[in-house]
Design a protein around this nucleic acid. Structure first.
Lengths: 146, 146
DNA sequence: TATTGTTATACTCTATAACTATA
DNA sequence: TATAGTTATAGAGTATAACAATA
């Protein structure tokens, strides 16, 4: 099967590579019963204690309606604590529980190992350049402004 | 919101960049009522006339069960022709119709413009290096073999 | 026995609209 | 009026199991 014309497109190659890396990271986290998105929520809450669900969803580019079940699950598992904000009665204040911090610590070790595996595969300079190029693509001008 | 630790990970940055590029390409194709996966099927069938659904699904990394509706829709729209293979009564032989070739031609122009936009944003050498790095990531050793 | 195409099914991810309570 | 969180819902994308027809 001739795939030459697809393989020279950034969009297609990006999609396939993302799927491989995502699957590899998902597998790495599977023992902790954590999906990548749950890991990213724990990380954000840990580094931004007292943040709100809206802030987390905006930062991750997830609709606020879709973050509800994700955070509710983490709260059910006693990894995230959710308290009504004293300053603003509409929003919650999010923090990690002790168990949440322990689990995040273990997940972060797995993430580091995953990252090291990627770096071993494409080289330190390759990884560095890749991050730079992907970061630029993230800020691609939208169709309206181009 | 502090995002520094997420932004230095290949997995997260790859995921966000892929979403941006995918949305941009989807938007570019929207006038033709084509999704990216439909474009890739048309392209593969055009460059591999007489190929089968199984070959297309394997090449694109899509389960054979999930390619059925995709191809059925393209056949319904008279873009793809599907005939029983004389050599193997189990499989179909796929080809583009004249309308399919015309639509693919228009889609390819949009794809080229999309690709040019990406290249303008990250540079020709950046695009070239990006493709090389993503291609390597696609062949990341699986967990079992590493 | 194995493969092609198919149906059924389920789970995840994503997007929108509408609601409540608070501001 | 606007925002935070919620519910309901629908559309994609993806995965597995099981089947008929054919090899």
């Amino acid at each position: 099967m001739d795939m030459t014309s697809l393989k020279v497109t950034v969009g297609y190659t990006l999609r396939r590579a993302q799927a491989v890396v995502f699957a590899d990271f998902s597998e790495a986290l599977s023992d902790l019963k954590l999906r990548p998105v749950q890991y990213s929520v724990l990380l954000l809450v840990d580094q931004n204690p007292g943040t709100s669900q809206s802030s987390v969803s905006a930062a991750l580019g997830i609709q606020k309606a879709n973050i509800v079940a994700i955070i509710a699950d983490l709260v059910d598992r006693r990894l995230v604590r959710r308290q009504r904000s004293p300053a603003d009665g509409r929003s919650y204040s999010l923090d990690l529980s002790s168990a949440g911090k322990v689990l995040l610590s273990r997940a972060s070790q797995l993430q580091s190992a995953h990252e090291a595996k990627l770096e071993a595969h494409i080289g330190a300079s390759g990884r560095s350049r890749l991050l730079e190029l992907l970061e630029r693509l993230m800020h691609l001008p939208s169709d309206a402004s181009s």
